[in-house]
């Protein structure tokens, strides 16, 4: 590359304003059309883009910075969106944690038969995408005599359960007291609420999936595509931090059905269990079933060594 153009004393300004030669004019034209043509060809796929974000939603602040009035408007906005997109009259609320309540779960390993009714009840309740399919609960079929999850079978499908020589261990969000996912999030889009439930502001999450990598229980799910749910399967009772339909490109997870439990109901998975293996309650209430189990049963938590302090307990009967 030799430099012919930068004369020693030629005034720079003159150099700038000298007329374009025919050759450089053609060259500039060819380059310009390459750039413009190339950019527009490259951006063609954007024609199919369906914008899911209004300007107001784009500038919406973090959950903890929303005033009650603004929240009211946001809930209305979500109801309208659900109606527009799915033709459903949804009721979107923002139930707050109840004071002096710490929710906890206890699962009886001896009772669980591995029927996966909890898995499907959860999907129906929480408006997860059916395509691509998202489930919060994963039931591991484990051979007797081991705790090693690597020996588990996730895709077991016999005609009847339980299978001889196996036991079943359902895993979902453990609502950790020390949640690694919350630490991981670079924008504070996920946090532990006052009742111990780890929640996500779906309108704040940037979709980096660091929380998903950080979770030792594989409890978090990402919306790789726009969630698809048949209209008749949509649960119209929705919670802002809970089961409302998630936007594409954001994280979601089990919230102990916060829209239900903060209104005195049981989580759907607990209600659906035919074996009575799933118990739920308030850790701070000495008379709760949870406290009874913690006092009387052989309780353990999953992966205690990673220091997450789950509020999801497993226990044995026999």
């Amino acid at each position: 590359m030799s430099e012919k153009t930068t004369g020693k004393s030629a005034a720079g300004k003159k150099e700038m304003f000298k007329p374009l030669s025919r050759r450089s004019f053609l060259k500039a034209g060819a380059l310009g059309s390459l750039l413009i043509g190339g950019t527009s060809a490259a951006m063609l796929p954007l024609r199919k883009f369906k914008n899911d974000t209004s300007l107001e939603t784009f500038f919406q602040q973090h959950y903890e910075r929303l005033t009650p009035g603004r929240m009211e408007r946001i809930l209305k906005r979500i109801e309208n969106e659900v109606k527009e997109r799915h033709g459903i009259e949804a009721r979107v609320k923002d139930p707050k944690p109840i004071p002096d309540v710490q929710f906890a779960y206890a699962l009886n390993i001896s009772r669980c038969v591995g029927c996966r009714r909890c898995v499907h009840a959860c999907v129906e309740e929480n408006n997860q995408s059916r395509d691509p399919e998202i489930q919060y609960i994963r039931v591991l079929e484990m051979p007797d005599g081991t705790f090693d999850v690597e020996k588990s079978n996730h895709d077991y499908a016999p005609d009847t359960v339980p299978t001889e020589g196996k036991y079943y261990m359902p895993v979902q969000c453990q609502q950790c007291e020390n949640p690694p996912c919350v630490k991981a999030c670079p924008v504070g889009a996920t946090w532990k609420d006052d009742d111990g439930i780890v929640v996500i502001d779906y309108d704040w999450c940037i979709g980096c999936r660091y929380c998903e990598a950080a979770c030792p229980y594989w409890a978090r799910r990402f919306n790789f595509a726009e969630p698809k749910i048949p209209k008749e399967q949509i649960n119209p009772e929705m919670a802002y931090l809970g089961n409302r339909i998630r936007p594409k490109g954001t994280m979601e997870k089990c919230t102990f059905c916060l829209g239900r439990v903060r209104n005195g109901l049981l989580p759907k998975c607990s209600e659906a269990c035919p074996a009575g293996a799933r118990q739920f309650g308030n850790l701070l209430d000495p008379d709760s079933v949870i406290r009874h189990i913690l006092r009387e049963k052989r309780v353990y938590v999953f992966k205690e060594e990673v220091g997450t302090r789950p509020k999801f307990y497993y226990w044995f009967d026999k």
């Binding site: 974000t53 784009f58 973090h62 910075r65 630490k183 991981a184 999030c185 670079p186 924008v187 504070g188 889009a189 704040w204 999450c205 940037i206 979709g207 980096c208 999936r209 660091y210 990402f222 919306n223 936007p247 594409k248 490109g249 954001t250 994280m251």
Partner: peptide
């Protein structure tokens, strides 16, 4: 490479301190 990995690249501004909510120094990503 980080931007193309984001599910919601439009929300990039959430990372900007003050107007967003930058989880520094807790998050290693921050």
């Amino acid at each position: 490479f980080v931007t193309v990995d984001l599910g919601r690249p439009g929300r990039f501004w959430h990372l900007i301190p003050v107007i967003g909510r930058f989880n520094f120094p807790i998050s290693m990503l921050s």
